[in-house]
Design a protein around this nucleic acid. Structure first.
Length: 577
RNA sequence: AGCGCUGUCGCCAAAUGGUAAGGCAACGGACUCUGACUCCGUCAUUUUCAAGGUUCGAAUCCUUGCAGCGCUGCCA
């Protein structure tokens, strides 16, 4: 299976990044003949979501495509934001997607010593200086469009900066009192070049370095150095770093790096409609209990998607399908859903489950009699075999499969209409039983004993639909959770929009007392006994005519199976009302 | 307003000066023991944001506009 995934990813169509890379390693290119080396640098301050998948597939995928390598690097230069808590989850999610970094696992903080030496090198070259502007002053002196920035400390003698930087490092300077700034161009139209801060003081415990350091490099300084030290050729990142590229190049140019200079290339990050992608907003949903957690099946997080039933293959197919470009667009969720259906249609075992049960009584079928039928596990895969289902006089069928007064084009049960009970018999509806309030409580029908297996003895064409059912005698109860979009608004992430106001109050519908084949009970029990249920996909099925469902990796138990609807089946039946 | 990026079907996206791929969605139809799947067909020719220009030929090159996104953290 991993090999299949590999080939799939490596065979994707080209894109502008691959064109650049091809040029770079080709004849006359800046990395002629070299091994392509990329990196995936998540900041360990939250869970990976589908937006990260795009970056993941681009970083690892590009390396794979060119027979190169991709490093995993935890970008943890800001001690105030990162936490070890997320590190393991990030690794787990990447592995689940099918990517592997081998022994190339790093932390940005592992380079603090080198960062420090490179900073001193810049000072010595007259390319960096210690600035004593406070944060407020810094902002005031920042200038504006057309107005250059200022710093009274810009021309401080090299020796003095060296001394002060040493003091900063030794903890002799209060937090916020001094910064180290790169000396570039205070008048640049690109604000990142207006003598950016490259070191700040922070008296906070770092999740890996402890209290060893009290000065920390900024992203713009640390990242190019990390890339350079790891021998990265192509540093692929999202569009918002485009204007940071001149600074990236400046650092790489002015610091004595042991290898080649890496090249930064930017691509558009992923947006999907009806969802939010920012960590801040996702965190809010979790912390304010709008969802049950980071792995709520409605969340776009990888753990949420996995719990929902999304396969790694479907997500990688999706990323492959949407392509790589520089246009900031919003991809329709329908595209992702298509990829899931496509994958699950091939692999998911078919089973019958009745979500909103109503009794069906076959009045001319002997009481107490029972027989077995074989149901194909997957019609798209003849090798997948069959499984046995029991049948009797009393069945459960879907409530919506009966209508006392049929609507136009309705092919299911209504008085006088003949339908097929999947894999069993043809039955003709003879009426129904209602309670005192007029609600239908039981549907009545008569079966054609000559149609055993589902085909009529006389070979007549059955015009009615084939409906699914479960035997009352053997069915077991299950909880089924149906999910809709978390947000009604197409773009809850849009400007001037309060995403919390766009939430769909009916994004989760819980159904109890759903009737499933007894086989599901055995599978739920086996799943119950598994040790690590969250790092891989739970058993997944197609509930015929209903959609794809998987066991919930948190709440399902042998006594109380819980299924999540991963995605519905497409439905072209549109009754005119 | 300064800097940067981007405008090709409802959505994503090819086309690298040679006459607008593909996928998703949608809509028809065929098939079907899942109203699924599959298959067939339709879906940018006063056409590539607009207007000019260069060229035998322009989505591609030039000019001028217009629109969208991003940027003035001691975040990444």
């Amino acid at each position: 299976m991993p090999d299949m995934i590999k080939e799939e990813a490596a065979s994707g169509s080209s894109n502008f990044i691959w064109d650049f890379v091809k040029e770079d390693i080709g004849p006359g290119g800046q990395y002629e003949g070299m091994t392509v080396h990329t990196r995936f640098p998540p900041e360990p301050n939250g869970y990976l979501h589908i937006g990260h998948c795009k970056a993941l597939c681009i970083d690892f995928g590009t390396a794979e495509h060119f027979g190169g390598l991709c490093n995993l690097r935890m970008d943890d230069t800001n001690p105030a934001k990162e936490d070890t808590e997320y590190v393991e989850a990030i690794q787990q999610d990447i592995h689940w997607l099918g990517f592997d970094w081998g022994d190339r696992y790093f932390y940005g903080s592992d380079y603090f010593e080198q960062d420090y030496e490179f900073a001193k090198e810049l000072i010595k070259k007259g390319l960096a200086y210690v600035c004593e502007l406070s944060a407020e002053e810094f902002r005031e002196f920042r200038g504006d469009i057309g107005i250059p920035a200022r710093s009274p400390y810009r021309d401080r003698p090299i020796e003095e900066s060296l001394e002060l930087f040493e003091k900063m490092k030794n903890g002799e300077v209060e937090e916020g009192k001094m910064t180290l700034r790169a000396k570039i161009d205070l008048a640049s139209g690109n604000f990142n070049m207006r003598d950016p801060v490259i070191y700040r003081i922070r008296y906070i415990n770092h999740h890996r370095q402890g209290t060893k350091w009290c000065i920390f490099p900024m992203y713009d300084f640390a990242h190019p150095i990390q890339d350079a030290l790891e021998g990265i050729t192509h540093s692929l990142c999202s569009l918002e770093y485009e204007e940071h590229r001149p600074l990236y190049d400046w650092v790489v140019e002015n610091v004595t790096i042991p290898y080649h200079k890496p090249r930064q290339i930017e691509f558009a990050r992923l947006n999907i409609d009806h969802t939010v992608m920012s960590k801040r907003k996702l965190r809010k949903l979790v912390e304010e209990d709008y969802v049950s957690g980071w792995d709520d099946p409605r969340m776009p997080t990888l753990c949420g998607l996995r719990r929902r039933g999304y396969t790694a293959q479907s997500i990688r197919d999706f990323v492959d399908t949407i392509g790589v470009g520089k246009t900031n667009g919003v991809v329709e969720l329908a595209m992702l859903e298509h990829c899931l259906r496509d994958d699950l249609n091939r692999s998911a075992e078919r089973t019958m489950a009745v979500l909103r049960p109503i009794k069906l009584t076959i009045t001319n079928y002997p009481e107490g009699k029972s027989e077995n039928f074989e149901l194909e596990n997957n019609p798209t895969d003849p090798e997948s075999g069959t499984h046995t289902i029991s049948f009797s006089r009393n069945l459960w069928i879907e409530a919506e499969d009966f209508l006392e007064e049929p609507i136009p084009k309705y092919k299911r049960l209504y008085p006088g209409n003949e339908v097929r009970l999947k894999g069993a018999y043809l039955v003709t509806c003879t009426g129904c039983v209602k309670d005192a309030d007029g609600n239908v409580t039981e549907v009545l029908c008569e079966y054609d004993p000559g149609s055993r297996g589902g085909d009529p003895a006389d070979g007549r064409k059955v015009k009615g639909a084939t409906i699914h059912w479960v035997d009352q005698a053997t069915a077991i109860d299950a909880e089924v959770r149906l999910y809709e979009n978390l947000f009604l608004d197409e773009q809850p992430d849009g400007p001037d929009k309060d995403f919390l106001q766009c939430m769909n109050p009916e994004s989760l519908i819980v159904l109890q007392g759903c009737k499933v084949e007894p086989e599901m009970g055995r599978i739920a029990k086996l799943f119950d006994e598994e040790e690590d249920r969250t790092s891989k996909n739970a058993p997944t099925f197609q509930f015929m005519r209903n959609g794809y469902f998987c066991l919930d990796n948190r709440d399902s138990s042998a006594d109380h199976p819980v299924f999540n609807r991963s995605v519905s089946l497409k439905d072209s039946f549109k009754p005119k009302k």
